[in-house]
């Protein structure tokens, strides 16, 4: 396609495009809802809301293994 033809098609496509009522790509489910945006609640009035408020977290020695959804996929991971 030459440049002029390409641009003609592109312009026509834009002018033919209606404005989507959702104004967003609604092909997939939500990334997250309104409840997601509340991190600043966690420090209101000088406290922490992580359950163990104000207690120190574990000391700096690494003793953790992944225990989330990655475990379901772990057996399938091939070396890069």
């Amino acid at each position: 396609m030459n440049k002029t033809a390409l641009l003609t098609v592109a312009l026509a496509s834009v002018l033919a495009a209606g404005v989507s009522t959702t104004a967003a790509a609604a092909e997939k489910e939500k990334c997250f809802g309104v409840a997601k945006a509340g991190q600043n609640d966690c420090k209101a009035n000088g406290h922490a809301c992580a359950g163990q408020a104000s207690k120190d977290m574990d000391p700096k020695e690494w003793k953790y293994v992944p225990a989330g959804t990655c475990v379901e996929m772990k057996g399938t991971l091939k070396a890069m």
Binding site: Q39, C42, K43, A48, C49, A50, Q52
Partner: peptide
């Protein structure tokens, strides 16, 4: 230590 823990935990939770 309460303040150190708060600063840390607030960020980790966020």
């Amino acid at each position: 230590r309460h303040y150190r823990a708060n600063c840390r935990i607030n960020r980790v939770a966020a």
